[in-house]
């Protein structure tokens, strides 16, 4: 009996941890970056993973360009982007449209926190 409990416990805990989080159904893997934007009067930035991974493998951003794999961990500034760092490595008018298109990146609703979003969310890293 005790042995059974010991085995059932992790599975039960897991089942609890996975029970759905009530939240709007944004696309899986979307990241909000809002360390600085709203404070500076701009809408939060929404970064869609699904759109970029069709075009680039993870290693391009998370190894070559050095984006930390943790929402909110990269302190990105607009100056650096215009100088060709972070998003600006590609959003420079060559690989992709340039940083002049403010609304395409600064597209989030007011008040969003920096973290990963998505409809099938589990207790992923962004929640801790």
């Amino acid at each position: 009996m005790l042995k059974l409990l010991k085995h059932a416990l992790p599975v039960l805990t897991i089942a609890f941890a996975l029970s759905p989080v009530p939240e709007a159904w944004s696309e899986y893997g979307d990241v909000v970056l809002n360390r600085r934007s709203e404070q500076a009067g701009m809408a939060p930035v929404v970064f869609p993973h699904w759109f970029h991974r069709v075009r680039f493998r993870c290693k391009v951003c998370h190894s070559e360009l050095g984006f930390e794999m943790r929402a909110g961990a990269n302190d990105v500034t607009m100056n650096e982007i215009v100088q060709g760092k972070f998003c600006g490595t590609c959003h420079n008018g060559e690989i992709a449209w340039s940083a002049e298109n403010c609304g395409l990146c600064h597209s989030g609703l007011p008040g969003l926190k920096s973290r990963i979003h998505g409809g099938h969310e589990t207790l992923g890293p962004g929640r801790w």
Partner: peptide, 23 residues
């Protein structure tokens, strides 16, 4: 271990965030 994964460590850094979820 599975609890650490569910908290976003090890495999859970990607699975549950960007890659197929832990369900």
């Amino acid at each position: 271990n599975m609890l650490a994964i569910l908290q976003g460590q090890y495999c859970g850094q990607c699975h549950g965030a960007v890659s197929f979820p832990l369900t």
